[in-house]
């Protein structure tokens, strides 16, 4: 079984919103029609996006840390949004685990958006159908594109490579290795939705230097100079022992 997913590395995300704009650009130009965008340059801009980058402050001044946090549909393995849909417009693909909405069947009842704890579904207020991240399903299988471009638009756009894409069910895939070895985790595990997308935490590189490492143990007189040498032909301790 395949379960395609994204892994988002919070350690390197700089909050530049490149994934947001490239996502909107790709998906608003796709065969499903545009995604609404009202007053883009006016006072209250609003519209449908599949992906948002949010910013959080962790800690209290002056000990704070800024975390940029991209959020889109997590393509849950047990998606609560799917069984509630009365029309079957919301479904999870058997073949690759992508959760999709069939825009021709959706009646715009919004029930699925109530049933997503992550707020990942946004109704298109012009087309009146539910929209959400498709993992660029119209890109990743497109054989017209060169192999290395068959990835979601956000993954290609990210300048810091904070977004990885692959199959979480394949233990040796790049993203499975990253989740396993870099401490990947899921959002709101308390609801049992088993999100496929994972996040990698902030990782600090710390070097611990102990006091005795600051002082040369073999220099008891603390003299910074060349090691005193006996006569060149005299036997040394180094010849008979090893430390």
């Amino acid at each position: 079984m395949t379960q395609l997913a994204l892994v988002i590395d919070l350690n390197v995300c700089v909050g530049c919103h490149a994934c947001v704009t490239s996502c909107k650009e790709w998906n608003t130009s796709g065969p499903a029609g545009s995604m609404c965008d009202d007053n883009p340059y006016g006072k209250d801009p609003t519209g449908t996006f599949f992906n948002r980058v949010q910013t959080y402050e962790v800690g209290e001044f002056p000990l704070t840390e800024t975390v940029h946090f991209p959020k889109s549909c997590l393509h849950c393995e047990d998606p609560p949004c799917v069984p509630v849909c009365p029309t079957g417009a919301s479904y999870k693909r058997e073949s690759d685990g992508i959760v999709l909405v069939d825009y021709d069947k959706c009646i715009g009842c919004r029930y699925c958006s109530w049933a997503c704890p992550y707020g990942a579904r946004e109704i298109d207020e012009h087309q009146k159908v539910m929209k959400k991240c498709t993992l660029c399903v119209d890109r990743i299988y497109d054989e017209e594109l060169p192999e290395e471009e068959r990835k979601p638009a956000c993954v290609l756009a990210c300048p810091t490579s904070a977004r990885l894409f692959g199959d979480v069910h394949d233990s040796e895939s790049e993203i499975s290795v990253a989740i396993r070895e870099e401490g990947g985790y899921q959002l709101m595990p308390e609801w049992g939705t088993k999100p496929s997308n994972h996040y990698l935490p902030r990782r600090k590189i710390r070097k611990h230097i102990h006091k005795d490492e600051l002082e040369r143990a073999d220099n008891p007189l603390n003299k910074e100079q060349r090691k005193p040498h006996g006569p060149i032909d005299a036997p040394t301790l180094d010849d008979s022992t090893s430390w």
Partner: peptide
Amino acid sequence: SSAQTAIGVRHTKVKQIAMGMMGGSVNTRD
């Protein structure tokens, strides 16, 4: 659920400073 489980950071003080948009969306209206 809390801000901690929502973004997965273990700290008693987690505060949002930007939701990623300025004019609101269905998420802020509905």
